[in-house]
Write a protein that binds this DNA or RNA. Structure first.
Lengths: 154, 154
DNA sequence: CTTGACCTTGGACTAAGCTCCAAGGTTTAT
DNA sequence: ATAAACCTTGGAGCTTAGTCCAAGGTCAAG
């Protein structure tokens, strides 16, 4: 069992945040001491870890609360309902991964076309790298130019 | 050239949001009419599209502002600096994709083990699906149980 | 030449997600 | 047995990202 401060330290967060989560129905300590201290179990820590990870992938506390409340009352739910809810979240995640990958591709092209030397970054266009409408009439910048520039320097 | 309301409509947002972005250095209209109306160019629209996409993959307005200001003053920057900044964002994106994929894998396992029928969702554990420490001593639930249940019904 | 749909600025308001503070109770180490 | 380091509640304050409002200017149509 952890006291609130111990659990908070374990996950690098403030006790305040844990109280905030409790108030919003995300995570209640599984016990209290006679004097009223919150006591968190190993299970609570696992749930907290889940909450933190869900948050880090972009779920709001409300969405997480929904997942958590399903988990808490799972014997009352039909399996089909749980599956349905989870599949909705899965769709959201797939879409988000796809968008991130598109973004990654754009930035990577930019990084690759940006030679990384002392020369001006005039041709390192973030927009050019990311906007599809640019791509048709796009100038392709190779590092040749820079290598040439480097050659001149030598 | 678009007036503020036209551009806003084009991207399903409020004029207020565009003014907000302007105030925070993300997007200034490339012209004003004599009477002071903001006029946005095609270029401005491209930049706005970028801002919206960056936001959708989880960048804060501050981070986007940083990328945009690099774009705006790119001739003043050394190529290496731009590449450096962009590479930092790329790392962030890679990490985020990885985390999303881990989350996706967990939820997918859950969805698969959750047979989706009328039976109780007792064995559909989101935590079990997502917490690695569970996996070692994990019960594997197959849909056999349910198929059997279905068979009994017939 | 007025009506309605736009636009301007400035400032107030909201919601989410914390974060801090005050006033007091508890536990622990010296 | 007393100080330091925890904990409690309640409520205020902060940041981010908008969103709304008021008072007034502009512009095209009838």
């Amino acid at each position: 069992m952890y006291r609130i401060g111990e659990l908070a330290d374990l996950f690098n967060m403030k006790s305040d945040t844990l109280r905030y989560y409790e108030k919003h129905g995300l995570l209640s300590p599984s016990a209290r001491t006679e004097s009223g201290y919150r006591m968190y179990s190993e299970q609570d820590a696992v749930l907290l870890k889940f909450i933190i990870r869900a948050k880090s992938v972009g779920f709001t506390l409300n969405e997480i609360q929904e997942l958590v409340s399903i988990e808490m009352n799972k014997s009352q739910w039909a399996c089909a309902d749980v599956k349905g809810r989870v599949d909705i979240k899965l769709d959201k995640i797939s879409a988000q991964i796809a968008e991130l990958q598109r973004f990654q591709k754009g930035l990577k092209e930019l990084s690759d076309s940006c030679c990384g030397g002392d020369e001006s970054a005039e041709y390192c266009s973030i927009l050019e790298a990311l906007d599809d409408s640019y791509k048709e009439h796009r100038h392709v910048h190779h590092c040749d130019k820079v290598l040439h520039h480097d050659a001149e320097e030598k």
